[in-house]
Simulated scan of single mutants.
Amino acid sequence: MDTKSLIIDIATKLFQQKGYMGVGLNEILKACNISKGSLYHHFPNGKEELLIACLQTLNEAITTDIEDIFQRYSTTQEAAIGMIEQLIMKFETEGTLTGYTFSSIVSEMASLSDPVRMACAQLYQKIQHIYSNKLAADGFSKDTASSIALMMTASIEGGMMLCLTQNATEPLRVISKVLPNMIKEF
């Protein structure tokens, strides 16, 4: 792994675990075993530029996972259940959903930095687009598919945060049962 990728990988984990404000540059440097000059070589604008690179990497990883899952199932309901089951399994085996949620970064930084807010918005838009496309393939109109996709994104992301705060999978299990019925009712 090259130095830039190493920095992004380690910083992403630190930001997800401790939040943007909770991670100092020195902690990143120490965890990566690099100098300040090396970090600024790759990220001349510092920590915020690094955060945006981390969000872009998360964007790619998360949406690739979602796309893979949604291609394996014939309907949105089946795909959503499959994705939620994967999240539950990850939480049960690893005790966390690091790598799948970035809500803590959004809540911490969105009002402080337009570039960070926009990077987060792009990820949510890409997730909703995946959902919306699958819903359109299921026969929903573009507007209805867009509305359901927004609801799915909010429900699943909120469910992940509730799992983390409750240290339990029950929120995602409930969403897995309720979400398919909500989609049918639309």
Rank of each mutant, 00 (worst) to 15 (best):
L6A: 07
L162I: 08
T63I: 00
G22L: 06
L14R: 07
K142E: 12
I81P: 06
P44S: 14
S35K: 08
Q125S: 15
T98P: 00
A145Y: 02
M161K: 03
F140L: 09
Y100S: 10
A154S: 13
I8K: 02
I28V: 15
K142T: 14
I156V: 15
N181C: 00
H129V: 09
N181Q: 12
V178G: 07
G22N: 02
D68M: 10
G158R: 03
M118F: 13
Q86W: 04
I148H: 11
G19W: 05
A121T: 15
I148D: 12
D9W: 03
S132N: 01
N45T: 02
F70S: 03
D65T: 11
P115D: 08
N133R: 13
Q71V: 09
E108H: 02
T165Y: 07
M83G: 04
E108K: 01
G139W: 09
Q125I: 13
P180L: 10
I127D: 04
Q128S: 13
S103Q: 10
P115F: 14
Q125Y: 14
L14W: 13
N26E: 10
S107I: 15
T153K: 01
A11Q: 02
I28Q: 10
E48S: 08
I8N: 04
Q16V: 03
S176I: 11
I62E: 10
K47N: 02
L51E: 11
A110F: 08
D68W: 04
I81D: 05
E67I: 15
Y20T: 02
Q16F: 01
K134V: 06
I8Q: 00
T63Q: 02
S103P: 03
E185G: 02
E185K: 13
M161A: 03
T76Q: 01
S103D: 13
T96E: 05
T144E: 11
R173L: 12
L55M: 14
S35E: 09
S155R: 01
Q86A: 15
N33C: 11
Q125A: 15
K134E: 00
F140H: 13
Y20L: 07
D65P: 07
E92P: 11
L164H: 01
E27H: 07
T165M: 09
Y100R: 14
T98M: 01
E94A: 07
A168Y: 03
Y73Q: 01
Q125N: 13
L55A: 08
I148A: 05
D143I: 06
Q56H: 04
I34E: 08
G158L: 08
E170M: 06
I34V: 15
P115C: 05
K184G: 03
A11I: 03
S74R: 06
I156P: 03
T153L: 00
D2Q: 00
A149K: 01
N181I: 14
Q71F: 05
L29Q: 14
C54R: 03
A136T: 13
L55S: 03
S155W: 00
Q17K: 15
I28R: 08
M21Q: 05
